[in-house]
Design a protein around this nucleic acid. Sequence first.
DNA 1: TACCAGGTCCTCG
DNA 2: CGAGGACATGGT
Length: 204
Amino acid sequence: MHRLLLRVFNRLLEDFGEQHWWPTLSKNKRLEIIIGAILTQNTSWKQVEKAIRKLHERGLLNEKKLREIPEDELANLIRCTGYYKQKARKIKEFLKFKEQITRENLLSIWGIGKETADSILLYAYNKPVFVVDAYTKRIFERLGFGKMNYDELQKLFHDNLPKGVKLFKEYHALLVELGKNYCKKRNPLCGKCPLKDICKYRTK
DNA sequence: TACCAGGTCCTCG
DNA sequence: CGAGGACATGGT
C-alpha cells in the first residue's frame, strides 16, 4: 500500500517533471496564494489567473488595499471566477481574521473549508498537510480505492507517505496535472495515461 | 446545448 | 453524519 502511493508519485514525476507550484506573480506570495486558494474553489485555474492579474495590476495584492476596497468593487474584479459575490465576502472574512494560522482556526473562517485551509497551510505556510481535491478523489477512485471522503483520503496519504512539504506539494500538483489532462471526468484518456499499467479503470 | 471547473455553506432528515 | 441545492462565470 505504501509502495503504491510512491509508485504513482514516481511515475507521474517521470512523465510530467516537477510542477513548480503554486504559481504567483507578486511579491506578497503568501497573500496571493491565499486569494488564489479561495478564488479557485470549483473554478478553473485559468479564470483565477485572470482575476489575480487584474488584482495585481491594481496593486490589490496587498492587505491594506484589500481592506480598503469595497466588497462589491472587489466582487466585480473577480467576476470571471464565478461565485464572485461569495468569494469577495470570503476574502474579506479572511482579512478580518487575526488568530494564529492553524488548521482549526482557518476552518472557523466563513468560506474556508478543508481543501482551502490545507492549500493555505501547505503552499502559503509550508506545513506538511496533504491537499485533497476533486482530482485526487477521482483518480484514486479509478485506481481502485473506492469512493473515499476528504478525511479518509488525506489519512491515506499521511499514513503511507514520508511526511514532507516538498513531496506533498509536488504530489498534489502532479495529480492536478493528471486529472486535468488524462484522468478527466468526461473523456479520460486511459490509452495514453501514465498510470495505465497501474490502474484498473478503463474506458471502452 | 449541456456539462465541467484545483468547494463551501446551509438545510433537512 | 450524508444528500441535495445554491452560489455564477467562462470554456468546450
